[in-house]
Amino acid sequence: MTLLAVERIKLFSTRSPWWCALVALATTVGFTALIVGNANEQFPATVATTQFGYFFGLAVVMVLAALAVTTEYRFGTIRTTFQAIPNRTAALVAKTVVVALLALVIGEIVAFASWGLSVLLQPDFDLALNSTADWINVAGVGPIYALAAVMAVAVGILVRHSAGAISLLLIYTLAVEDLVSLIPNIGDDIYKWMPFNVANKFLTGDGASNAGRAADAGAPLSTSPLSPGWALAYFAGTAVVLLAVAIATAKRRDA
């Protein structure tokens, strides 16, 4: 508990978490407003539509999580941390937990704010959360943000350099997976198993939350063969493995 308190104090004694939360909220909700606000008969608003902007918040959360680690390396406070808590695994896990919890909260706020705004903007469309798929599509954003933050912390520990970690994370999440899917013949088979595509499976499943909207008028559905539950487990597993590799590296390395 002490370690969690330490990391919580470290994180919240700077202004960056507040700024990140605000930016995540503003960009995601703003984009949702654009999409939902322009909805019409041809492109109806659905529960899934209210979450089309979730990648904005995701990108912000991952930057925040990576910075939480890399700034410690840059300013040398990581040495102070390891001095105070020689058990590096405990120190880094505590940090990861705190960052992940923050990401979870940001995710839930962003998701429900996007959904709430959509309900206000389009009272005529059926945006009620009346199935498991609907609930997962909205409330599931938090866990995905949290796990993505874990991955970002892991990358931050491995790369130790703000510019490198941010570039790697954003280019990977926002571009590489899609590029891979373009490789002829084998691309689709690899893409099926790429983490953020799988995460998308957890959120949108087979498109139940997007019912009534033409498939080609929305974000493409995930091609993952997993069920939503297994998709979440797979995404979580990827995050945990990455974190384990990162912590093992940090333990072996000079601080």
Partner: peptide, 9 residues
């Protein structure tokens, strides 16, 4: 951090 995030996003 800000510059890269904006450019990449």
């Amino acid at each position: 951090a800000l510059g890269l995030a904006v450019a990449l996003v």
